[in-house]
Design a protein around this nucleic acid. Structure first.
Length: 289
DNA sequence: CACCAGGCAAGCC
DNA sequence: GGCTTGCATGGT
């Protein structure tokens, strides 16, 4: 891949292995939206970015050289060799098939705090509504960011949310999850849970710390680890993953979540998180086919 | 009208 | 330990 800087635009040439649509539509993130052309606009790290793809070229705007190295190169995980990941997983014929649909996914390195709240909101919820709740949360409690003639909003800080009441939060219509959002905000703001430290500790230590937050169980903790803490062995099992593992590997036989996790951990090991994303996207492709 | 959605906590055995 | 139930809200 070649990176070209042109003022406030950054262009990635020969960016095979990076598919913008797959990356944003694989359920890992909730704040990127398709705009009129083939570009996506989103907010991350308190900045607005427009990103578009033309064949093998990806354009980021506004993105200076400094922005690229400080924020977006890491956010899009551009230094990782995904060919290596896909090669390792393609020894499994089902993964090979899944990767033929979803091989352009990159696992975003999102901010830990944002992933905590986003995936608490995701519990027993559907993607369009999750996005709606998060947008209302940001609009009510985040900071405005102007971009052309529209106002976008940053993700609210732990401090801001920790000082809210349930009544304040009721406006975002998060349902029973509102109390979990407050609990998470208080624990993170008080450093009872030191999120940033969880990147550098073992997966099991991070996992157990996350479970101390109300509303964070096995699935949500796994998502936070995979999408926010760079623990790539995490393997979140949701209804989609359960369905596709059962149908592809067990002839439709019903398995418990625990059995699925154990099966996938032994099969995919430290590449589990990548496998999970390829399978999730594939399962949803099959569903809409 | 049921049923479902990237599950979890609490209460049972 | 594992299994069941209720849960806010909105879409189909």
């Amino acid at each position: 891949m070649e990176v070209i800087f042109k003022g406030n635009k950054t262009i990635l040439k020969n960016s095979e292995g990076f598919d913008v649509i797959q990356t944003f539509e694989c359920g890992q993130c909730f704040r990127w939206n398709k705009s009129n052309d083939n570009s996506y606009i989103g907010v991350a790290h308190g900045r607005v970015l427009s990103i578009s793809q033309y064949g093998n070229s990806v354009m980021l705007y506004p993105c200076s050289k400094e922005d690229f190295y400080k924020v977006w190169e890491g956010y899009f995980d551009l230094k990782r060799d995904y060919e290596l990941v896909k090669k390792r997983l393609s020894s499994d014929s089902i993964l090979k098939k899944a990767i033929s649909y979803s091989g352009g996914i990159r696992i975003l390195r999102q901010q830990p705090w944002e992933t905590v709240i986003s995936f608490i909101i995701s519990a027993n919820n559907n993607i369009p509504r999750i996005k709606g709740i998060i947008e209302r949360l940001c609009k009510k409690f985040g900071e405005p960011i102007e971009f052309f003639d529209k106002t976008y909003y940053s993700f609210p800080t732990p401090e801001r949310l920790a000082k809210l009441t349930l009544k304040d939060l009721s406006e975002i219509r998060a349902g029973f999850r509102d109390k979990y959002i407050l609990d998470a905000a208080k624990k993170v703001y008080s450093c009872q849970v030191d999120l940033n430290s969880l990147i550098d500790v073992s997966a099991s230590v991070a996992y157990n710390q996350l479970l101390t937050i109300k509303g964070v169980g096995d699935k949500v903790a796994s998502c936070i680890m995979l999408f926010g803490l760079a623990h790539y062995e995490a393997f979140p099992v949701d209804v989609w993953i359960r369905r596709i593992i059962q149908s592809c590997y067990f002839k439709g036989k019903e398995l418990s979540i625990k059995e699925i996790k154990e099966f996938c951990n032994s099969k995919f090991g430290s590449f589990g998180g990548f496998a999970q994303q390829y399978l999730f996207y594939y399962a949803r492709v099959l569903d809409t086919a």
